[in-house]
Nucleic acid binder design. Structure first.
Lengths: 231, 231
DNA sequence: TTCTAGATATGATATATATCATAGTATTTA
DNA sequence: TAAATACTATGATATATATCATATCTAGAA
């Protein structure tokens, strides 16, 4: 069960400057009265594709995936979001229902601001609107750029890319626990589950990584970087 | 040479309601004083990746492509934009330089609004900001959705997709002149030029289409629709 | 506990796609 | 006008990837 958790007033929140840094005290109060923090356990669904949009969401702690449900019970993962990311995208302003589903890959804390309240602040404060556009457009641009980058690569390059992604952007370490299954990796970088497993095994045999279940250790990051670039 | 053309005042422009419908007379005047209409001939470059962002652009007439220059002299086409599309994307608010190049596939007329002026209007008018977000988020969402759709398909499905795209969304006709070369089709749907040509030939042999240079006639749209869906 | 569904793993094979080669045709450039 | 360059076209071949089959190993359900 998602669980409402106690939260401080926005004005003392350490995430304030993420977006709300230049609001007037009244505007910040409005946001504060209309926000809540919710804790999701690993595996729980944060929002579901097609449901009415009622909140603006950003991730305070944890890790989540944005994805769409495909026809044949196979998802398409759009992106992995980390703390400080805005996980409800801009379409919230143009659509009445969420375009993507979001679920927690690790225990996560989400700050949820009521959409009408947010709209009211934007309507009064154009500079705030520009801040939102900046942040969201960066998310969109990153998603688009990443998609092209991944699709240009061969399968070995894609696997290398995703390992480097987790190592560099999520865990800042050469050794980490994969937060998603081989199948989800496949859904993220558009290949079959078998080939994800196969290529990870190849990397292991080539002594580029070690594998222990979901635990990955990068033995040769330079070589991985090379595979990522060249194939 | 791009050519400045005479343009009416924004308040009488038939494109006003595209975005500027709810501006106050003063705001509309500000936009009007800071806008110009420019005519680009087929093949001319409208804006170049990496150049300083000075204008907000939308297409009034014609057809353009958004693309990035790749390493090996092979472009990646991001999307094809048609009249009423905003061809400078949201990144204009977050980046200082254009992220994509834009060039004219057909003679095109672009309305260009000075960025500082637009920013001033947004800053004063939050509802206008929401309008911009709506429109732009739709462009982003479409690009992302299209990318996933294309990449899920086999090559025959991709070619069918792109033929249907031109037929349905651009020319509203079963018969049309392809505005791009086989090579550009390849750059748009991520395959090799040879295979674009080969599969178009297959469609011709299968009597799904006729080909006369760039001229395509769809003989069997239903079957094409089927190829698009199934493979 | 036992049973079951899902995840990981690997091999054999079929299929899809890219690459290489070559040639004709159209279009631009000198 | 000729020469050069890009575009279209097609075949042969190599390579990359998906599919199918099977097995083991979990983690959760009964």
């Amino acid at each position: 069960m998602p669980e409402l958790i106690a939260s401080s007033h926005c004005k003392t929140c350490s995430y304030k400057n993420l977006l709300f840094g230049n609001l007037s005290p009244e505007e910040l109060n409005l946001v504060n009265r209309n926000k809540k923090e919710i804790m999701f356990k690993k595996g729980e669904i944060i929002s579901r594709e097609g449901k009415d949009i009622t909140s603006f969401l950003y991730l305070k702690e944890g890790l989540v995936k944005l994805y769409t449900q495909s026809q044949d019970n196979r998802d398409q993962i759009i992106s992995i979001a980390k703390p400080r990311d805005f996980i409800s995208l801009l379409s919230m302003f143009s659509l009445s229902t969420y375009k993507y589903s979001i679920s927690a890959l690790e225990d996560s804390v989400v700050c949820s601001v009521n959409m009408d309240a947010l709209r009211e602040v934007i309507s009064k404060n154009g500079d705030f609107a520009i801040e939102i556009m900046k942040k969201m457009s960066k998310m969109y641009d990153d998603i688009i750029e990443t998609r092209f980058e991944i699709n240009r690569k061969h399968l070995r390059g894609r696997i290398a890319y995703i390992l480097i992604f987790f190592s560099t952007h999520i865990y800042q370490s050469d050794e980490f626990e994969l937060p998603i299954s081989r199948r989800e990796i496949a859904e993220l970088i558009q290949m079959t589950t078998e080939n994800v497993i196969r290529i990870l095994s190849e990397f292991r045999k080539d002594k580029i990584i070690t594998i222990d279940g979901k635990r990955i250790k990068m033995l040769n990051p330079d070589r991985l970087e090379n595979v990522c670039k060249l194939g």
